[in-house]
Design a binder for these strands. Structure first.
Lengths: 217, 217
DNA sequence: GCACCCGATGTACGTCGTACAGTTGGCGCA
DNA sequence: TGCGCCAACTGTACGACGTACATCGGGTGC
């Protein structure tokens, strides 16, 4: 800690905050902690950001800007939509702790506007009129965020083996339920406790969203 | 404030916290504030809850238990699934500020287990094997939560006319974007800023989810 | 009438965000 | 070379937060 090898800037603060959130969760992102991490007084942060809200907004914007939008193609709208949603998920997945804040910058950050325009265009191509396209686009983004942010027991970040213990305990708890009342739940227990973060969880549910759009046309 | 007309209990604290969150947002739910609201010392809360996390868990559980699960019927699985998802949305909608915490009690609270069992049964009826059903059920719940919690500019709660001003401003900002780059976005601007909380927003996107499940079978 | 113990109090500590005022170091310009 | 300015940072302080720990009062059961 206490690096102080370079001048402070919005970017290095945001990068530091992101790393901190990834490593120790969003609640570790503290004005004082960020200052300490950069070998600087807490009040130094306020030269670069009006307040903590502004800092978190910048974090969220950073996330939105990390989305690598695939280039438009001649592929059918549903394939393209699937690619766009996947691109969002890919950008958010490394940062589940901050993903939940991404939605509030989608209509603010430049990259978010571009992203939204793209999705709306695809939805128009699918035959939705603007009003419904707006509602669906909004929901799609929130859903992808939910897909990533999820929320298993990830409130406090722990060591990998501790996490594994917790999952095993949770599975066991579910498996110990009365089998006559909860047959399906018991059968699905392993999947319920461990699906977050799995590749097939994302694949399956991104498909679900795209198929859902097909279904409501 | 300072009612002190009845003995404190978990239930009156939870009710008070819920009302507080509805009126002033989740950040207004504070140990000290709850104590003051009940005419009591902050430390009195700790007789009823181990810590604030436990209090918030109780809030979330309360929400999950508020879901009025429709009775099983002979209707096809998709119609029933739609009804169940709608029941969840109906229970959460009055409390958007706390809805985001509901997911972490779904596999803990009794009502949540019942709810999950029901959804898993319907998904099994739809032809999904347990593992995929688990993944889809998890996602469906998170999506409905996202549908309700959404996140417009609702971070700070404001007066209705102030909110209306803000929406108008946001719409105007979007409408002022370069029309050649953002044609769809401009056309959809009113819907984008005001869709949260609208009935048709819920209806449309619950349909999307159900259709999505149909699509991935 | 007495003891017990549930439910509350009182005090104190460390951490948070941040207001406000003071201080510096390096660059433009003389 | 020297001077002044202003962007960037420091120092101090305040109120609100969660909560550990010790204490206490009064209603209930004997």
């Amino acid at each position: 800690m206490a690096k102080r090898n370079q001048r402070l800037s919005r970017d290095v603060i945001v990068d530091c905050a992101m790393a901190l959130a990834d490593a120790e969760g969003l609640e570790a992102v503290t004005i004082r902690r960020l200052a300490q991490e950069n070998g600087v007084t807490p009040m130094a942060m306020y030269w670069h950001f009006n307040d903590k809200e502004a800092l978190l907004d910048a974090l969220a914007a950073h996330l939105v800007e990390a989305v690598k939008l695939p280039p438009p193609s001649e592929a059918p709208w549903d394939a393209q939509l699937r690619d766009v949603l996947e691109a969002i998920a890919v950008a958010l997945r490394p940062h589940p702790a901050v993903a939940g804040m991404a939605a509030r910058q989608v209509l603010v950050a430049d990259a978010g506007l571009e992203l939204t325009e793209r999705v709306l265009a695809l939805l128009a191509e699918a035959g939705l009129e603007p009003r419904r396209a707006a509602e669906v686009a909004t929901f799609l983004f929130c859903s992808v965020v939910a897909l990533v942010a999820g929320d298993p027991g990830q409130r406090e970040v722990v060591t990998p083996e501790d996490l594994e213990d917790r999952l095993r305990l949770k599975t066991a708890t579910l498996a110990a339920l009365p089998p006559t009342r909860f047959p399906h739940l018991i059968a699905a227990a392993p999947g319920l406790v461990s699906c977050f973060g799995q590749d097939d969880f994302f694949d399956l549910n991104l498909d679900l969203l795209v198929q859902g759009v097909r279904g409501i046309r």
